[in-house]
């Protein structure tokens, strides 16, 4: 589904990604962990097409397409979803209106007929239940005045609405209390099918109790320095990154 080869990217002349290799197949869950500043969020942003970063080398294909040549919205319409670490507020634009436009644009791109207002409302009700999101939030402005937990639930609600092929969730667990974490993580798990894939970026093993990864990657200084299975996350939780980093330094 997603194939990243030797991907390099920089921001303001500073190289952040120094050759990333990553293979994600349908039905898989990948976790990306690593110390602060190692490039995890940058990787998510670059894959989504954020123009703040400049790709300086390597390649990425998504569903057989050259991902790096596509616009941000084309990537989204093809089925790449980014769950934001810090969802931005858009004053005066209701969540309902925002989602209506997003769903309509993505359906149009795929050549599907637009949803009727009734179908749309039904979808909203169904999908907001996935993350136990108060349906009143849908009439409020996008992320405006949302609590930290509501913002993250709202990200997963949007993921549920848009049914992406590949969801990249950037620290969706940060700032969540235990209950909200369970709700958000359970929501993500319920959305997982053999046809789609999820990449979760996280600092904490506790998220992975719910979202069980097939692969755990450790990103350090712009490179994936180690890949393991779910037991790697447990080891990292217990022992930290030092043992890996030390190895890496020796290399």
């Amino acid at each position: 589904m997603l194939s990243v080869k030797n991907l390099r990217a920089e921001v303001a002349g500073k190289e952040i990604l120094k050759g990333i290799n990553l293979e994600v197949r349908a039905g898989e869950v990948h976790a990306i962990m690593g110390p602060n500043g190692s490039g995890k969020s940058t990787l998510a942003s670059v894959l989504a097409g954020n123009e703040k970063f400049t790709v300086t080398g390597g390649e990425a294909t998504f569903l057989g397409r050259d991902l790096l040549s596509l616009s941000i919205e084309e990537r989204a319409c093809l089925g790449l979803f980014l769950g934001f670490q810090y969802p931005v507020e858009i004053p005066g634009v209701s969540m309902a209106n925002f989602m209506k436009m997003a769903v309509a644009e993505q359906r149009k791109y795929r050549g599907e007929a637009p949803l009727s207002p009734a179908e749309f409302l039904k979808l909203v009700r169904e999908k907001s239940a996935v993350v136990e999101l108060d349906s009143k939030l849908i009439s409020r402005s996008v992320n405006e005045g949302f609590s930290g937990g509501e913002k993250k639930k709202n990200e997963i609600f949007q993921m549920a609405m848009l049914e992406p092929k590949l969801a990249i969730l950037d620290e969706t667990d940060s700032g969540l209390d235990i209950d909200a974490l369970r709700i958000v993580a359970t929501g993500v798990t319920r959305l997982h099918t053999p046809e789609n894939a999820t990449v979760v970026i996280t600092h904490y093993q506790r998220l992975l109790d719910y979202i069980v990864p097939d692969f755990v990657h450790v990103l350090y200084k712009g490179r994936i320095i180690h890949t393991g299975d779910k037991s790697l996350a447990l080891k990292l939780e217990k022992e930290g990154y030092d043992w890996l980093i030390n190895d890496y330094r020796e290399e």
Partner: peptide, 16 residues
């Protein structure tokens, strides 16, 4: 730019 990126990422063109 954050607002535009957010909208783009959900499938909206910059114009929209």
């Amino acid at each position: 730019e954050e607002q535009l990126f957010y909208c783009n990422q959900r499938g909206l063109s910059t114009e929209d």
